[in-house]
Write a protein that binds this DNA or RNA. Sequence first.
DNA 1: GAGTAGCTGATTGTATACAAAAAAACCAAC
DNA 2: GTTGGTTTTTTTGTATACAATCAGCTACTC
Lengths: 242, 242
Amino acid sequence: MNQPLQKISTENGRKTTGTQDELVYAHIFDAILEQRLAPGTKLNEESLGEIFGVSRTIIRRALSRLGHEQVVVLRPNRGAVVASPSIEEARQIVFARRIVEKAVTELAIENAQPAQLVQMKQLVVDEQSCFARGDRGAGIRLSGEFHLQLAIMANNPPLLSFQRSLVSQCSLIIAQYESGGKSHCSYDEHFELIDAIEQRDKQKAVRLMMHHLDHIEHKLSLDETGASDDLHAVFSNVVGKK
Amino acid sequence: MNQPLQKISTENGRKTTGTQDELVYAHIFDAILEQRLAPGTKLNEESLGEIFGVSRTIIRRALSRLGHEQVVVLRPNRGAVVASPSIEEARQIVFARRIVEKAVTELAIENAQPAQLVQMKQLVVDEQSCFARGDRGAGIRLSGEFHLQLAIMANNPPLLSFQRSLVSQCSLIIAQYESGGKSHCSYDEHFELIDAIEQRDKQKAVRLMMHHLDHIEHKLSLDETGASDDLHAVFSNVVGKK
DNA sequence: GAGTAGCTGATTGTATACAAAAAAACCAAC
DNA sequence: GTTGGTTTTTTTGTATACAATCAGCTACTC
């Protein structure tokens, strides 16, 4: 027991501080976004502790952080589960993202450094190659990182941290609702967006961004008629019947 | 030792779930917003544990949550201190609030329930009476709660949670920079805002809100020339001199 | 006397033991 | 076979013990 975490951090190209709870957090986070953990999955503290070779204390910290970002939901005395936002919740998240992405896009245009733009292009190339080789999970995660990078360019830490939470939740939504075949939030649009930013064309960039979010939201409507596991929603037609 | 926390929760009119860490969190939070804890104050885990009659485990959870809301800053291996945002950081926070408050105001107008408006009016009355009797700290906190209530009316949970963090940080800023005499973010403006919302006048409401935030930002400029404890900022004029 | 190395006390980080709560299994009655 | 309650087991919540780290001090070197 208690073998150290060793360099599991190098699995993806993310910078890690090296503290244990950071690592555990990052791993669970990635697993959720890459859909190796399905929405609704129970996250048992002791099992996770054994998997990562750390005590429940560390797992607990990681879960609590994930809970604060709304990627998992913490139910008092009942443990944590991977969040599974309803369509209504998904709509609200996308709405909030519209607000934030608009501001972030405009700020990014004002503050973009050439080196950052180069980095972003590389990110989209990586994203593209993920989808090309069929690694949908990693693709969704990189797509999210693109939007995070944009918020970094915007140079407003509070907006960045909100963006982080929203992007995570959106990735979850995409993973949950964008079933199978349909190609998702496409990297083409990301390339176009970078162009618009390079040209410092705020109007165009914002328009592209909104269009981008329309795509996500559109997928939700398609699924609207699907089955639900919310009994109240399912039986809302008989309310007051008794 | 370990006398229970008992009903310290009734000190202010806030609803509490009753779990210990919630209580501790709320108490520290209030203490910071009401300036009983000055920015920069070290928050010793053991001392807090003794004060609240709980173990460090609980204190740690509360601090971690406060840290995530950026009301305290957690320095690894060096403990937590009450945040003391620089003027630059304060500007960024206010900027983010502009974005969110605009969206929240518009949503609130769309979704406002009559009962909620009544509640908000009462809140402003309470706020007013706090300032009238010289309880500046509680006044600042109630003023923040006004803006939170607005976000509740807006009925978008993600925006609400971001608003919570922003309002907290703003209260901290107000407490820190709005020195002495000058009457702060005034309740008159809150009354006007409620009126505009009742009349469903989006343009007017948003205009009032922006005006409101101008006031906060204006205070920052006044302080700009003040002393700083950021050595880089202080000596920025000699950069490259050597 | 300035600067550095090592020591000491205090504080945070982590693991673990135990208590409390919830879930599961079980059994009885109908 | 299903329902209702009781016991057992699992899982979470909290306190605490111990390890690792840091800040401040002393003493030593140059």
